[in-house]
Structure formats: structure tokens, C-alpha cells
């Protein structure tokens, strides 16, 4: 899927809140069609990294480039940049006063000024793909968490973004709803979408990623293929992190014989 065309470049990014350094000297290149999963313990700055890419946070040093054009700290033009970078949040924030289809169309019509009929057709096609066409005129409150999150993905997709950012989008969902959302993302990855994903679903990360980036204490500690990362982590910090997800069996069925 991956080719050599760089889409997103992050160079020496440094992000501070007052004196607390959240991200320090981050360098990442993301290529067209690549799926990058960012892992790391909570508080390591994963979400902040995505928010910086989408310009929701200003950065203190370094730069972020989209197709070679600087996009970091561009206050005035930021809304143009965001039209090219889709982002889906953990808390699936659909707009509660609009129907599903209106939610999806707000961006394409108002921000991009596209034709309403074309955009509607596309929105419906996308909704059908995620199995929610029959909900097109419902309101967000009538949908389950997983359904809302799928709509949020469609809403971002309908903008034709060049890169999609997913910020722990299954973290707030009930376990049985996680799958339906992850399936949508797997399908997007198969189609060659460029994605940066922050997640706590390790199995999923392994399945979808072309590359894993492991962040800890505001730095990139390890960067490798999923196979290497999960089977043979280079750093002890990564090993420790992965161990958290393994459990030892404490009760054996034959223990009370």
C-alpha cells in the first residue's frame, strides 16, 4: 500500500504547556497510503501529537508540513488545512441538533462549498458502506455509541481528507461496539487511506499498522514494523509496556482437586 510519496512531515516538534514538555523533538514522516499507529502509556502525548497535527494545539518548536507546505501555527489558514486532514475524536462529537446526514454535509457544503446534491449522494454512499443508510434522518441521540462513531468517521471521510487522524476512537465504546468501528477502519486501510491512529487495542494495532511508533515520556522511543514491535521490542520500556497487556493465569480449573 505504501509508496514513497511523503504526505506529512513532522520535524523537531516540541510542545509545551507552560513549563511542562508534552512532546519533545518528534520527527515523523508519513507516506501516502501508510497506516501509522502511535502507541504509548497514557499521558505520553499521543493525543496531543494528533491535536498538533490538526492545529488544535499550537507548537513551540519545529514544524509540521503537509505536502511540503508548512501547516503548524497557521492561525488564519488553519481551517483550510483542516479540510485536508480529517480527525475523529474519542467522544464522537456529532452535532446534536442536526440529523445524521446534516452532520455529514455541514463540512462539505459550508466549509468546502460543494454542491449539495453531489455531497448528499456521496454521504449516502458512505453511510451505506458503514451500514447506516437507514439512519440518515435520525438524530445522534437515537444512535448507539458505535453507530455514532461510524457516523463521525463518515463525516470526516466526506471531506476527502488526505490524512485521517483517529484519536482513541474506541476508548469510550462498550466492548461489543468496538468491533464494528474497527472494521470500518480496517476497510479504509485496505483501500489505501493514509491514517494515523492512536489506540489501546493492541490486536487491532498489530493488524492494521504498517508502522508502529512508540512514545514515552514525550519522546519517540521506538519505531518499527508491527511484527518486530510486538514480538521483539528493542527497548525495555516497550517490553514493559507490552507486558501490561499479558495476564498470567491465576486460577486453574484443576487447582481444587
Amino acid at each position: 500500500m505504501k509508496n514513497d510519496e511523503k504526505i506529512l512531515e513532522i520535524k523537531h516538534l516540541k510542545k509545551k504547556y507552560d513549563d511542562t514538555v508534552i512532546l519533545n523533538d518528534i520527527n515523523i514522516n508519513i507516506y501516502k497510503g501508510e497506516v501509522v499507529v502511535v502507541l504509548g502509556p497514557s499521558g505520553c502525548g499521543k493525543s496531543t501529537l494528533l491535536r498538533c497535527i490538526n492545529g488544535l494545539e499550537t507548537i513551540q518548536e519545529g514544524g509540521i508540513y503537509l505536502n511540503g507546505e508548512k501547516i503548524s501555527n497557521q492561525d488564519k489558514k488553519m481551517h483550510f488545512v483542516r479540510q485536508k486532514i480529517g480527525m475523529v475524536f474519542q467522544s464522537y462529537d456529532l452535532f446534536p441538533h442536526l440529523t445524521i446526514v446534516e452532520n455529514i454535509l455541514l463540512g462539505p457544503i459550508k466549509a468546502q462549498g460543494r454542491d449539495k446534491k453531489d455531497a448528499t449522494q456521496e454521504a449516502e454512499k458512505l453511510l451505506e458502506r458503514v451500514g447506516l443508510l437507514d439512519k440518515r434522518n435520525s438524530y445522534p441521540r437515537q444512535l448507539s455509541g458505535g453507530q455514532k462513531q461510524r457516523v463521525a468517521i463518515v463525516r470526516a471521510l466526506c471531506m476527502h481528507p488526505q490524512v485521517m487522524l483517529f484519536d482513541e476512537i474506541t476508548a469510550a465504546l462498550d466492548p461489543e461496539m468496538v468491533r464494528e468501528v474497527l472494521d470500518v477502519m480496517l476497510e479504509l486501510a485496505k483501500e489505501g487511506g493514509t491514517m494515523v491512529i492512536v489506540t489501546h487495542e493492541m490486536q487491532f494495532a498489530r493488524a492494521i499498522a504498517d508502522r508502529i511508533i512508540f512514545l514515552d515520556q514525550s519522546r519517540i522511543i521506538e519505531e518499527s514494523t508491527p511484527q518486530e514491535f510486538f514480538e521483539n521490542p528493542k527497548t525495555s520500556r516497550a517490553k514493559q509496556f507490552l507486558n501490561v497487556f499479558d495476564f498470567e493465569v491465576v486460577k486453574h480449573s484443576d487447582s481444587n482437586k
Binding site: 492545529g55 481551517h79 483542516r82 479540510q83 475524536f89 467522544s91 462529537d93 463540512g107 466549509a111 471531506m159
Partner: peptide, 18 residues
């Protein structure tokens, strides 16, 4: 109005006024 509503709006490329 939760902060996320502003951010979701930003994330689909709307201007502050929009």
C-alpha cells in the same frame, strides 16, 4: 456547550464564524 463541539467544528474545516 461542550468544548468538543467547537473542536469537531474545527476538525471539519469550518471557520470560527461558521
Amino acid at each position: 456547550i461542550p468544548k468538543h463541539q467547537y473542536e469537531s467544528g474545527k476538525a471539519i474545516g469550518l471557520t470560527q464564524l461558521q
